[in-house]
Design a protein around this nucleic acid. Sequence first.
RNA 1: GCGCUUGUAGCUCAGUAGGAUAGAGCAACUGCCUUCUAAGCAGUAGGCCGUGGGUUCGAAUCCCUCCAAGCGUGCCA
Length: 564
Amino acid sequence: MSHLVKKTQDSLKSIILNAVKKAVAAGTLPCDAESSFNIEVPADRLNGDFSSNAALAWARDFRMSPKKIAQEICANLDFEDTYFDKAEVAGPGFLNFYLNQRYYADILLDIKEKGKNYGRSDYGKGEKINVEFVSANPTGPMHMGNARGGALGDCLAAVLDFAGYDVTREFYVNDAGNQIDKFAMSLDIRYQQIYKGENFVELPEDSYHGEDIKECARDFADSYGDKYLDVDEQERRKALVDHVLPKNIQAMKDNLLKYRIEYDKWFHESVLYNNGELEQTLEVMKSKDLTYEKDGALWYKATEHGGEKDEVLVRANGNPTYFAADIAYHRNKLAVRKFDKAINIWGADHHGHVARIKGALDAIGVDGERLDIILMQLVRLTRDGEVVRMSKRTGKAITLTDLLEDIPIDAVRFLFNMREPSSQMEFDLDLAVEQSAKNPVYYCQYAHARICSIHKKLNSENIFPRECTQEELELLTMPEEKELIRHLSSLTDEIITAAKNYDPARITRYTVELATLLHKFYNSCRVKCGDEPLMQARLFLCDCVRSTIKNALDMFKITVPESM
RNA sequence: GCGCUUGUAGCUCAGUAGGAUAGAGCAACUGCCUUCUAAGCAGUAGGCCGUGGGUUCGAAUCCCUCCAAGCGUGCCA
């Protein structure tokens, strides 16, 4: 799936090199160029549609001033049968190139032909990527922090998919290990308190104190009454967990679905305990002499593999640590299920874990480079100018459900993808709700609705869009029209760059810019203008803008209303 | 203490694998609807790119110093 922009840029390189050859033959340049040079899109349109730093890059090779070199190249350019019609030397020696109208017409025809596939490419063809995100602890409800990770992960996966990768969206369910034991204990105590009073047993410091635990215990009691009070503690706790955990997991699925996130795979940590992979992983580590025993626990010699200190793998009480399970889990992703790449989205508070897990993977012979961790700064919520602490302890966490009830999902998904993950964002709840009508997402949706409105209006006057010829599309010569087309043309590259950099925020910014250009066009060029071919060409352009906005927002599962 | 991340307009952020005069949005101010949606457009104002040095034709961008903020440094996850 070649795309026009790339092809045009590549052709420009050979056009320049040919000019150099001609100049060398004519004796006006000393020798062929060696240093590499770039074709770029200048920030300022006054500097052309494409520019090249070739002359600057070759100043040393040629022992000539960049400006002189640029003039020589310029004089020898041959634009016969290309999309260019002129070039200029500017500034210290930049070569600026200007596209002809045929290029703009062909861009539009290309967009129209690709339709809803416009923006897709095969850049990542053949590569299997696993994107794991949210992976909230099933011991309680999801909170605001998970909202950012959810929007980020889902949209990153979408971007990778559009760029041609084979993407799997995955949720890691921590349904085993220590925290489940604590969860069971907390539930058990709350359950007993229902019948024996709050003072009967006290909740230890390191248990879950949230209100949600009480509700879960109450729910269990509603189903089974007090019949578990007298059974063996282990059996009672197992019954509690078996009852509550699936419900919690289902609640997370429901919530995420409301948030328009659908996973391909819910991977349960317990699987690693049951299928022997955790055990195997520990055996591999032992056999590679990566472990030792101390104080009754099994330790990993992390310090010998770039770590700051050694880490416990199996506690003295026999329970494996989260770290041990995590090694087994990533070994599963990369070595068992054979993903070429695994991307994890983690809260920045887990950053200390990054080097450890990669180092451990390297140590067991799985290339840690294949694991990419995106650290996302946690969202700091403020309300009435004060920071809202999200503590699970106090049970005051703002849940994902609360958030989705307050702020439209389109807005949340868009907003969380406006900034790079590494930015520490402050999120004023009141402002987010209050300003929702001014949210950039509405600005983009409005552009789409406006175009639909033009169509409706013209339809009511019995004017309908028709196919346009290349010649007709070449009538779009206003600066606002050309800007718009140029921006339309960059979607595919934008998606590829977003995929390369793991930065879906590029797409929201792209869409805002597209909306801006549409609004500018709308204010300076009337579609219904009395000139039939021009009107049809503008309708064609509008249609391309509409489908491009739709493709971009569809990709992020954000709705595109036809009227607002 | 050590480690990771971040410092760009009053606020929230861009700045594309050094490039041409550092850009948007919000907030403020001034204009534009008898003509396809004013949820829009045009304009004004606002900056020692945290500090100090270095690298080169050229640095917000790369290297080092320092300052500030957030987080981490559990037999928690």
